[in-house]
Structures are given as C-alpha cells and as structure tokens.
Design a protein around this nucleic acid. Structure first.
Length: 846
RNA sequence: GCGGGUGUGGCGGAAUCGGUAGACGCGCCGGAUUCAAAAUCCGGUGUCGCAAGACGUGUCGGUUCGAGUCCGACCAUCCGUACCA
C-alpha cells in the first residue's frame, strides 16, 4: 500500500493551527530581541503573481528561521494602495478606484493567507485608508514647518488632447498613450521635498549600509552624483549679460569651443527670443518627453543665438552661444561650455555645427576621449595631470574673481505633486488674501471625496463640484484646496514605521514602539527599487528625524534584492499569445493548443507579463500542488537574486519530492521515543557517518539561509534526505530518528506545512513553528581522511587519500607514487612539486 | 545615451580563499514493476573518442605551477534612468 500525503487537507489544517494559536502575531517584549523582516509591500493589482510568491517565500524563510533562533520576529504585510492602475481601471471599466483597490486587496490577502506565510496580519495596513494617510499629511505639514517642503515650477508631460499630465510610462514614442497626440512640455507649480539638503548625508550614509548589496550602494552613489567643479561667469560680447556656467572638467577650459544654454534659460530667452526660428526651435525642443532617456537619445539640436562669449583667459577667443535641446535648466546652472575633443556629445554637436575641435588632454586615445592624461595646448596648465589642472584652474578663476570651485550633486529635489485623484491629498489651502495656508492639524485628514466622476479628462478632484471649496483657516474667507495629491512613493517611504504601531490614531507611530522594532533587520524586494524608493525612504527617515519622530537614520539595515520571474512565451498559428495553461506538449514533444491540438510555437523566456500572456496564476498551483511545492520550487532552483525561470516541470519535481519525503518518514515508522536508547559510544561506522552528515547539514543550511543561498540550502537538504533514504535500513534507530527529526526541522522554513505534518507524525504534540532551531556539534564533523587532486603541469591526473594532518613530505610522496602520476611524469624531469596540504598537489615537469 | 547587473551541459544551477568544473534538481536514455499506463524504484547522462585521452565556463588577449574565479578589451542580455510600482 502506498502512503499518500493529502496536501490540501494537511496544509489547511496547519495554517489554521498557526492562525488559531496566533503563532506569528507579535508584541513588543523587552525580554526578547526584536527581529524585523520586511518584504516590500505589494500594489494590490488584482491577484498575486509569481513574483509576489517569490518575494514572500524569501521573507518567510527568514521570518521562520529567525523565530526559531529565538528572536521576536515582526513580519508584517499591507497594501501600497494608491496609484495609477486604479484610475486606469476607473477609466477602462468604470470601477471606482476605492472599490477596485479594496476588492483586489481582499482577494490577494486570501491568496497570501492560503500560501501559509508567517505574516502578522493583525498589523495589516492599506495606504489609501484615511487612517494611514492622515499621518502623512501631518508629516508633510511638519516638513513645511521645518523648511523641508516648498513649491516651485517644474516641467511635466502634457497631453494637449486629453488635457492632462502624463506619467513617463504613458508617453509612447513621444505621443500620449490614449490620445496619440504629440506630448508637450508644460510648466506647473508643484510641491517639492528638499532631499538635496541631505545629499551629503545620504551619500556618506551609504558607507554604513554594510548589509546592502554593493551594486545598490554604487547605484545610489552614482544617482546622488557628487561632483567637484568650477562655476564661473562668461561675458556676452556687446551686452552686459553674464552667463553662469558649471563644469566638472575645468582642466579642459582651453578646449572650449561653444556655450550652450537650456531652451528655457532666461538668458536664452533674452538673447534669442526675437531671432527668426527661435520659437520654432523651442517648440520642437518641447515636443519631447521629460524623461532622461528621451532627452539623451533624441537628436542633439542647437540654435545659434548669433551672440558670442569672450573666453575669460583668452581675450581674443570668442565662443558662439547656442541654445541646445539637451541642456536642462534643472542641472547645474542650465548652461555649459562644450569641449568637443573630450566629450562625445560635445563632439557630435561640434561636427554637426562645424565648430572648432581643440584637443587639450593627451590621453593616448583618439578624440573624443574623456580619459585621464596630460594637459596640452593650455597655456599655464600644460604638462599637468587632469587632477592637478582642475585644481589649478579653480585657483586661477577664483583669483580672477569671476568664479569659484563648487561641489554639486546630480540629485534633484523630490517633486511630490501629482495631478491625480487616487492619491493622498496635499493638505494645503489657497486663500486670495493669506496665500498658501496649511490645513490645521485638527482638520486632518483631508479626505479624498469618493463621489467623483471620470467622464472628463484631467483630475477629478479639480472638477468635483464642492470638494475644493473651503474656507481659509486663517482669515475665514472663501478659499480653495490644493487638488494635487502626493506621489505614491510618499506612502512607501514611512510604512516601515507604521507597521510598528499600525492602529495609532493620534500619531503616525509611537517612538518607543518603533525604537523596539526598527530599523528593519532585513528588507527584501526587487532590484528595480534600488534607487528611487530606497533613496526616498532613506531621505524620509532623515526628514522624520529632523521633525522629531525618530532618531533612526537608516531605515533598512540589510537589504536583499530578488530577481524577476520569467516564463516561456507561446503563440498560436495566427500569432496570438497563449497562456501556459492553454498549451501542452504532445507525445512527440511539440507544443500544441490544449483545446484543439493545433500547433503552437514556443518563444523566448521573458519576464512574466499580462500582455505576453506568459503568466502563471499562483492559485492554480495552490489548487493542484499546494503551497509547499510552490515555495520549494521557487526557492530551490535559482539563487534568489537572479532571474528565475518558472517551469511546470520544476514545480512537479518539487511536488514529487514532498510526496517522497512524506512516504519515507511515515513508512519508516520513525518515532522520537527511539531517542531514549541513544548511546553515542556504541554505534556502527555508518551511524557515525550519518551523524557527521546530520550535524554538518544543520550548520550548512543555517549558513546558507543567512547568506540567502536558499537554492544551496535546498540542495543540502536533498543530499541529506537522499542519504537517509539510502541507509534507512542499516542505521541504528536512534541515529535514524535524530537524522529525520533534524531533517524535518531544517525543512520548516521552506516547506512549513509538510514539516509540521511530519513533526507530528514522529510523535510531537506541539507546533514545530514554535520550536527552536536545531544545534550542531562540530566535533561530530570529523572523518579522519582527506582526499585531494594531484595535477601534472596543471592538469588533473589522479586523486589521493591520506590521513588527516599528514605532513607535506608525506603527501608529496603519496602523490608522486600514484599510478597515473607516474605515467605522466615518467622519463621527464620533475622541476617543482607544489603541495598545498588538504587542497592540491601540482607536479611541474618538462 | 548614462549608471548597475548577469553570461558555466539539452535546461535551472553548484564550485567559502586562484586548487578534482558540472554538487543538487529538471529533462532525456536504459532497466525493474504493471495486462497496459500513471505513479514508484534502480542505473546512465558535458562534447568528441572503442579506449587512452583531447577539448570545454559569452568572445579575444594577459597574469600564474594552476584561472569559471584575477587584469584588459569586446559581445549579448536584463534592471534603473527622477510622474509605473
């Protein structure tokens, strides 16, 4: 008779037990060390996808492992509930964003719960709930008071047909995604947070983030982009105008051949607004998205103002002043000088407009080259290195009094205004007499009205009949509300603190509680958040610091970035994308449609996306294979930081393994009562080997989990269980039962339901989820012998085995007498023998 | 364009430090069991070769007794690029 594991019944039983016994609900407890593991909160898009399963399987392993180690583990979950997709759903199918969002969240919660993740659901949050965003409105007011928020003009993508602002992703090939109209740039007055106040602190703080991947630290460093440069004035010939120019390459000063201004630079307007063709040029420059990619990849165009600037150090040299579409008012001073010989972009520009190209750095490469070298053709800088020339140039210009050395950052202030409905209202009132007035704290939250319509383009808040009409808190006269809402990165910048005190109605979070849990010991999420979200959250924490909310400076002590989940794509004969569940392999291996057996072509393996229909619904997996199989597969094959290819075959493999383990343990009839006969002195050599493996595996799996090598941990566990299975009949019962009990404990973070089932099947009465992590004894690792390879001229020729602690001479002797080594050294002179004990022997002959 | 990552059998991957390349798994091949199949179990499986052996970690070059690992150049691909989240 075959023993069968009833996955559905068993998994449901243990999930219920964990919930009933509130296994994963936690409170502050001064006697226990806190461990805060956090997976990035999901956007409630509808149903969970495999990427979520991957993310939360990882946090679950960590949560269960740390709990077993004795920590008080906080592992919360919630919803990043504001954002564009809800408004798109409203436009496309008339669903109200609030209904749509809450319904999605409820559905996803049910799915996540059926995965058995060890979340503390009592702390669930939804960022679109007034009880949540009320506090961030208060934070914004505190930022205002502390001079961390201000208003200024900035550029947005404008759709002239739909009369609305477009997100960068809504601009497709320079056109609005819905209207198809060419996008225009438009200036709006918007709210900004002063992240640049913390540029230096955010930069230097990166050094302390030792638990972060190096790649993310480098990306943030580059994003902040600290540069030392020179800012100085150029005189416009025949005018009293001076142009402020910033450069990071003052060493190439003598190679300058033109000046370029941003199209919206005030001086550009002043010099060129009456010139023929300028308006057309500016118009064309404005017909480009605001994204950096668009700007950088667009054809570089210039408009010659006809004016010249006098070179400050070469009175006879005059440089033409251009207006150029690739110069941004937001960067530096909105004006540059071009050095074609040492910058690709300047070079292209100079060639196009026939401007002089003067090499001033001998780099040993063809121009244009921005490499290091020695300065030439540059008067007093000649012979200097690039570094020294920069310093010398700054010194000279400072002496002249026309400029100064200055540190600048690429980082720009964070624009938080969005002209959208489904976001947190900015708590500001505009009064004709009093100007910009913050909403008084006792009037918070400024709630989003739910009775809005989406029949007109633009922001529903703006055309709501009454919502924006209010009275001025300061003078009492009629006034209007700010109709912009916050960027959704606002919500995700502080939620890690809210989880510490999620139901507090008075304040965002109590300091004592956040001090107990925060900062986050392990944060886990996609690498696509490497810069923006993570940098904003780091800034926000500093801003909260300044406003007295917390003393914590860095919110995330350790970070792990997981890879994407990919899947093969399928197309039918007509070229339509097909879902994986609608295709199958026929007996000859060819892919066909399930419905009518018509041929299907398999395409590339790419990121799961609805448009390519290469998605897997985790619900189908749960229904067929259960939660453990899904988790085990997703954790076992690929290292978590790399992309994962989801395959049905891999999933089935995991499922088979689960059944096999169940059979092995149940059929072997193992019971913990066997432990009573334990006598370590009186055991066979196979028992010693098994104990050695058992204890080595405990160590290895723990080490692997801590390094996020989940795939290796699973491989270790499989090797371990393979060995147990192999020796099942030959092991002394207590050694076998020790091995099996440890195996079950090691499985717990990966396949918690199965582990719980087996734990009880061997005689335990309490939940495995509450048990401590097993200990190992290093003294049991020893086997007494060492096997290493012997090379001849670097090629592997033999392996030798010798007693541990043999000396070099002995090892050399054994190596040289190995049969195959003799064969390859015979008749040749042995020039050298390299012996690295316990690692390798290399015999060099010839 | 710029910044960052990745590249190893048919496939996912392993290889603490520069020291036996391919652990573990998927797939495939052969066998057992079965009336048959599924499931399960046993054996094999980098390529070429009867074998000895030769070759082999994206490409090209370098350092070393020894390179998947270090250095240089390149190619491919993915992520981000400030209003997707």
């Amino acid at each position: 008779m075959t023993t069968r594991y009833n996955i559905k019944e068993s998994e449901a039983k243990w999930r219920k037990a964990w919930v009933d016994q509130k296994c994963f609900e936690v409170k502050e407890n001064a006697d226990k060390e806190a461990y805060y593991v956090l997976a990035m909160l999901p956007y409630p898009s509808g149903r969970i996808h495999v990427g979520h399963v991957r993310n939360y399987s990882l946090s679950d392993v960590i949560a269960r492992y740390r709990k077993a180690q004795g920590y008080n583990v906080l592992n919360p979950m919630g919803w990043d509930a504001f954002g564009l997709p809800a408004e798109n759903a409203a436009l496309e199918r008339g669903a109200h964003p609030a209904d749509w969002t809450y319904k999605n969240a409820a559905e996803m919660k049910e799915q996540l719960m059926s995965m058995g993740f060890a979340f503390d659901w009592s702390r669930e949050i939804a960022t679109c709930h007034p009880g949540y965003y009320k506090h961030e409105q208060k934070m914004f007011l505190d930022f205002l008071k502390n001079d961390l928020a201000y208003k200024k003009e900035s550029t947005v993508n404008w759709d002239p047909v739909d009369n609305c602002v477009l997100a960068n992703e809504q601009v497709v090939d320079g056109k609005g995604w819905r209207s198809g109209a060419p996008v225009e740039k438009r200036k709006l007055n918007q709210w900004f947070l002063k992240i640049t106040d913390f540029a230096e602190d955010l930069l230097s703080g990166i050094k302390s983030l030792e638990g972060w991947p190096e790649k993310v630290r480098i990306m943030q460093e580059n994003w902040i982009g600290k540069s030392q440069g020179l800012q100085f004035k150029w005189q416009v010939k025949g005018s009293d105008t001076e142009i402020d120019v910033y450069t990071t390459r003052p060493d190439t000063f003598f190679g300058a051949s033109f000046i370029a201004l941003a199209p919206d630079h005030p001086i550009a307007q002043k010099l060129a607004s009456n010139k023929d063709g300028f308006d057309a040029f500016v118009k064309k420059a404005n017909q480009m998205g605001t994204s950096e990619v668009d700007i950088e990849k667009a054809e570089k165009l210039g408009f010659d103002t006809g004016y010249k600037a006098t070179h400050p150090l070469l009175p006879n040299k005059e440089l033409p002043i251009y207006v150029a579409n690739f110069i941004l008012m937001d960067y530096g001073t909105g004006a540059i000088y071009g050095v074609p010989a040492h910058d690709q972009r300047d070079y292209d520009f100079a060639v196009k407009y026939n401007l002089p190209i003067q090499q001033v750095v001998e780099t040993g490469e063809e121009i244009p080259s921005s490499s290091d070298g020695t300065i030439i053709n540059s008067d007093f800088l000649n012979g200097l290195s690039v570094k020294d020339a920069k310093a010398e140039m700054i010194k000279r210009v400072e002496a002249l009094g026309t400029g100064f050395g200055v540190t600048k950052y690429r980082l720009r202030d964070w624009g938080v205004s969005r002209q959208r409905y489904w976001g947190c209202p900015v708590p500001i009132i505009y009064c004709d007499d009093c100007g910009t007035v913050p909403v008084p704290e006792n009037q918070l939250p400024v709630e989003l009205p739910l009775d809005v319509t989406f029949d007109k383009p633009g922001n529903p808040l703006d055309h709501h009949p009454t919502w924006k009409q209010t009275t001025c808190p300061s003078c009492g006269k009629a006034a209007t509300r700010e109709t912009d809402t916050f960027d959704t990165f606002f919500e995700s910048s502080w939620y890690q603190f809210r989880y510490c005190d999620p139901r507090n109605e008075k304040i965002g979070f109590e300091k004592a509680k956040s001090d107990y849990w925060a900062p986050i010991d392990q944060y886990i999420g996609g690498v696509e958040h490497a810069v923006l979200h993570l940098l904003y959250a780091r800034f926000f924490t500093r801003a909260l610091n300044k406003c007295g909310y917390t003393d914590i400076k860095e919110p995330f002590t350790a970070l792990y970035t997981q890879g994407m989940v990919n899947h093969a794509t399928y197309k039918d004969e007509a070229g339509n994308w097909l879902y994986p569940k609608d295709v199958m392999q026929s007996h000859n291996g060819a892919w066909v449609k399930v419905s009518d057996q018509s041929p299907v072509t398999q395409g590339r393996v790419i990121k799961m996306s609805k448009s390519k229909r290469n998605t897997i619904d985790p619900q189908d997996i749960l229904d067929t294979y259960g939660s453990d199989a899904a988790r085990l597969f997703i954790l076992s094959d690929s290292p978590p930081d790399r992309d994962l290819e989801w395959t049905e075959a891999g999933l089935e493999g995991a499922w088979r393994y689960i059944n096999r383990l169940y059979r092995m343990v149940v059929e072997a009839n193992i019971n913990i009562s066997d432990h009573v006969s334990a006598d370590p002195e009186d055991i066979k050599s196979i028992d010693k080997e098994m104990r050695s493996l058992t204890h080595q595996t405990i160590k290895a799996v723990g080490d692997d989990i801590e390094k996020f090598h989940m795939n290796k941990a699973v491989a270790r566990i499989r090797e371990f269980s393979n060995k147990i299975e192999e020796e099942l009949d030959d092991l002394t019962p207590w050694v076998l039962s020790e091995a099996v009990e440890r195996l079950i404990q090691l499985l717990a973070p990966f396949t918690p339901h199965l582990a719980e089932e087996l734990w009880h099947s061997i005689g335990h009465l309490t939940l495995l989820a509450d048990q401590p992590w097993p200990k190992y004894e290093e003294t049991l690792f020893e086997t007494g012998e060492v096997t290493i390879a012997v090379q001849v001229n670097g090629k592997m020729r033999a392996t030798i085995t010798y007693p541990k602690d043999a000396d070099k001479a002995t090892i050399e002797k054994i190596a040289l007498s190995a049969e195959n080594v003799i064969r390859f050294t015979e008749g040749q002179q042995i020039r050298k023998v390299i012996v690295i004990p316990d690692r390798i022997v290399n015999v060099v002959v010839g």
